[in-house]
Design a protein around this nucleic acid. Structure first.
Lengths: 184, 184
DNA sequence: ACCGTAGCGGAGTCGGCGCTCCGTTTCCAG
DNA sequence: CTGGAAACGGAGCGCCGACTCCGCTACGGT
């Protein structure tokens, strides 16, 4: 592969992530081409369908998130790690969610996207298990519930942007709900 | 207005709600016309733009929800009423959310849709205030946080359908988080 | 430096959807 | 019953976005 082709591919992917974050997955391919400084043809040569482009962008997003989560998992207090993971996901997930939604609406997650999602799930599972081992986090929730709740928070902001305090308090409520609850 | 026109209008609106619930707001107007057993022209005579159709469907949805919420508010225990409201919203809101999202992406909520949303907010505020008055629900959350969290749960299911137990547990976590929390 | 070819650009094609137009049908007042 | 207005149906228009095609550009091995 020629050097300029590699560079262009990278620029297209970067532009796509930018545009998807700003305008959602509905953004036109031409806008991405413009942002990347290439022609539409070039975009389609590197990513034959829009789905391929979204999929690749999602994989990069997920892997970055998983990386951050692994870093958070290194924290001494597993409960703090869980809090950090949830807060991080809640803040940065909206774009990712939109992309996953687009793929799901178009044949379901497949191949690399599914693999990346599973890597992410594995990290979450590890952090959650360690937090539960301290006895301070309720044991009747699993990765599914965590992802569900976080996906919710992320999604909710994507639709109707909301002040950072509201989001913070919402995350707080979620985290309190995850503690081992006193049954009144 | 002629009798058949009134009947057709109702059939179109009913079909629209059905189709939006099944396929999302992206569904084509023609599908709605087919389902209603009328021509495309008829749909557009009653609802000059797709936006009008979505808006009208959303208002009906919101008012039904508000009605259910008012019924729940009549419960003896205000905390039970809050639980009922949250559970109800979480289960039936996905379609509503999608419609609101579509309107927002196209100029924001306006007129009747905004009014209906405010009616819904008023009911939520009342239920929440009464629950907080018992001293069992934390006072640092407002309607914004409640709607935010519920919107999240609704949204999350719309994207990636999830078993009813997962949703139930998620709602449970949310509700536990809303209690006055012991600070460990 | 040279030239074969990988790669590029962007005008053009195709399909889908919102919306319009008008000849035809249906309702109902007199 | 009947005339005229109200309402209907669905072919057609215009636009937009995904994707293709091909003449041109410029990279890089020799």
């Amino acid at each position: 592969m020629r050097a300029d082709a590699i560079a262009n591919r990278r620029r297209v992917l970067a532009a796509a992530r930018e545009v998807f974050a700003e305008q959602g997955v509905e953004a036109s391919t031409e806008e991405i081409a413009r942002r990347a400084g290439v022609g539409a043809g070039t975009v389609f040569r590197h990513f034959p369908t829009k789905r391929d482009l979204v999929e690749r962008a999602l994989v990069e997003h997920l892997d970055e998130l998983a990386g951050q989560a692994r870093a958070a998992a290194a924290s001494d207090d597993p409960v703090v790690a869980l809090r950090g993971l949830v807060a991080e996901m809640a803040e940065h997930a909206p774009t990712k969610i939109a992309m996953a939604g687009h793929l799901l609406a178009d044949g379901g997650l497949e191949g690399s996207a599914r693999a990346a999602a599973e890597r992410m799930g594995a990290v979450t599972a590890e952090v959650l298990a360690r937090a539960q081992a301290t006895g301070r986090i309720r044991r009747d929730v699993g990765v599914a519930e965590i992802h569900f709740l976080v996906r919710g928070i992320a999604q909710a902001q994507a639709f109707l942007p909301v002040g950072p305090e509201v989001r913070r308090r919402a995350v707080e409520v979620l985290l309190d709900g995850l503690r081992v609850a006193p049954r009144p």
